[in-house]
Design a protein around this nucleic acid. Structure first.
Lengths: 133, 133
DNA sequence: CACGTGTACCGCGTAACATAGTACACGTGA
DNA sequence: TCACGTGTACTATGTTACGCGGTACACGTG
């Protein structure tokens, strides 16, 4: 049950929240994440859903899991920009641009958005749920 | 059956191909698109899948359909930038930026990508299937 | 009138998503 | 040693999205 009316899987939403906090510095390297069951209570999700997110994040080398101790933010050491990843990012960016052009959003505006995102801090009504509570 | 190994629905893929061709000027205002059944043969899709794409594009005012004549590219007249659309685009852009940062892609590189997309012409191996054949 | 057009259904099968529950292997600390 | 918390794995269930196949209808054109 949980939530209705979402176009993105719950475990992906959680992944992005964690990723955003890592990128913005809210979560630092080595920091311990809440346990699967604890995070499930916090986020109102099923432990399996959280576990799925953790497993996916580990595959992307965002976090590191020590089987009896917990999960921790991983250092972003040597991440080669995959050819396939590049293409995927460019396609996603292209879709955003196409929609923006249709909405008469100037390229300057988009550049501003990009800088804001890259700085780590959202500019406007960007909702960023805090997982620590 | 059709295709396997895709992470995006077929009708959405078709939508993006059409949108991209409209944005890049390959398809101009008033131009007639292939019929549902014709496009289905061209793209190797089910007519219902094409119809679903057309219906969605009409809801987004990309195309216009005259019930007995066909579907045509619609003029992009007065498209108010919806508050919700803005937020959605910013979120998508944010996700791209987060991934790019992880891949050690510089902000300058992203700005270049953005300009290339906005100019209408892809810079690198961006595949853009031509629906006219 | 025949024809092509978009549209609207229905049923079917597959897959993804999320839930619930149980069990296991591991490390920590009392 | 033992209890506990940790991540992980597995089964089962229900819902939803997706795509296909087929049929039918309303409309405009020739």
């Amino acid at each position: 049950m949980a939530q209705i009316q979402r176009n993105q899987p719950l475990y992906e939403q959680l992944m992005w929240r964690i990723k955003a906090q890592v990128a913005s510095g809210v979560l630092i390297i080595g920091e311990k994440l809440p346990s699967v069951r604890e995070m499930a209570l916090i986020e109102g999700l099923n432990p399996n859903t959280v576990a799925k997110a953790y497993r996916a994040l580990e595959n992307q080398n965002v976090i590191e899991t020590v089987t009896g101790r917990g999960t921790f933010i991983r250092a972003n050491d040597g991440f080669a920009a995959d050819e396939q990843l590049i293409a995927s990012l460019q396609q996603q960016l292209g879709e955003v641009v196409i929609e923006a052009k249709r909405a008469s959003i100037s390229v300057q505006e988009l550049h501003r958005w990009l800088d804001s995102c890259y700085s780590g801090k959202p500019h406007s009504p960007r909702r960023m749920h805090d997982i620590s509570h």
